[in-house]
Design a protein around this nucleic acid. Structure first.
Lengths: 207, 207
DNA sequence: GTGCCATCGGAACGCAACGTGCTCTAGCCT
DNA sequence: AGGCTAGAGCACGTTGCGTTCCGATGGCAC
């Protein structure tokens, strides 16, 4: 390594960023979010420590605590800003396929880092009940609207009884899935989704 | 205090139980369980500390860790041994009333210390996924059988379609209730139970 | 009754992560 | 160019965990 030009960074010295390139604003936010998602994926919510995230993002603990007062807020923000929204409902022309497709998309999210986030945030609601509203607003309610749209289209086609077009009925699928997710190890088997659809939702919305 | 008879306990001295009355076996178990339930009720799972339980039970941390390797195991055992079982299903002759009664009993449990325990144990499953099976075995499955019995009686009376006599359908009520409980502050309003029954379960099991 | 010993209560310990405060410095703005 | 905001790194006090040690005790065998 002695032949390395002095314009190159030596490989085995710890860079002290008090005298190194230093990020601010959006670049720093993005780096912290990325580090948070990576930690969430690699070690899970329980082992996600503020210091680990800071080191991974090449940031300081102070920079984290200046923006988020707790691990829960950091994770909620990171997942919210990085992940795609709940997306659009599929539109296959069949209520059963649409609902199954919606649940599969939801399950795919739960089986990734945002599932870890939901698990972790639900756990933190013990210490901070205010988090319940955050979880509902960001992770629960958006999903319900997708299913409500599916039911509306099904009602137009005559597949769904009109009195089934309620928030509560649209929530049944996601809620049963979420409950299964919280009570079992990941990933959620596809067979569970099929059973929820065929055994519960289809009989529930039939004319 | 010099006039106090030596057969009386002085009121304001700290008793060192290295030389005081000392319990063993069942008496000690009972005292620890009682202290755990009291802490669960008064400060909740999040603030339940092993040292607080030990002091409250007039026991030592060592005695606790000799029996349970973690707070979660202690709480699970304490609730399981102290609380009544899920009880019997009501039998009013009406499926709707039976289910509503069953859900009300379940909600009453959730609104007490065993609800705190469920919340806390669900939270701990992040660190110890094995706890999921404990929660399911002790707090979830027993409830389902109650509702399955209700459905069977309803089917005999012709109130329930026979194809609805499945574990999954019997679980819908408890699962929706549990999901609501986890996502909102206690206590669960009775109106929620009524809506679950009238908007979801009754349409689902109709002939 | 007497002695034994598993178990108790109490206290101290090392450990890990939290959240904060301090110093020095880089980057932006005027 | 100079000043000010904000970031990096480090050290600290705090809390709760789970363990270990010590002296004491109460039930049991004899």
């Amino acid at each position: 390594m002695s032949s390395v030009s002095e314009t190159c960074q030596p490989a085995n010295v710890t860079i002290d960023h008090r005298k190194g390139p230093r990020r601010r604003g959006d670049a720093l936010y993005a780096a912290i979010f990325e580090a948070t998602l990576d930690e969430l994926t690699e070690v899970g919510y329980a082992e996600l420590k503020m210091e680990r995230v800071a080191n991974r993002a090449r940031a300081s603990k102070g920079s984290l605590y200046r923006r988020w007062s707790s691990r829960a807020e950091l994770v909620a923000d990171a997942v919210h800003h990085t992940l795609p929204g709940c997306g659009e409902a599929p539109d296959t022309g069949s209520v059963r396929e649409d609902i199954l497709g919606g649940l599969r998309g939801f399950a795919k999210l739960l089986n990734g880092p945002s599932g870890e986030a939901v698990r972790g945030l639900m756990a933190e609601t013990i210490r901070d009940p205010d988090l319940m509203e955050v979880v509902r607003t960001r992770f629960v309610e958006p999903g319900v609207n997708v299913f409500l749209d599916v039911l509306r289209r099904g009602a137009v086609r005559g597949e769904v009884r009109p009195s089934a077009l309620t928030t509560r009925i649209a929530s049944v699928g996601p809620e049963l899935l979420r409950q299964y997710f919280l009570a079992h190890r990941s990933p959620v088997p596809d067979q569970v989704l099929v059973e929820i659809v065929d055994e519960v939702i289809m009989p529930l919305i039939r004319i």
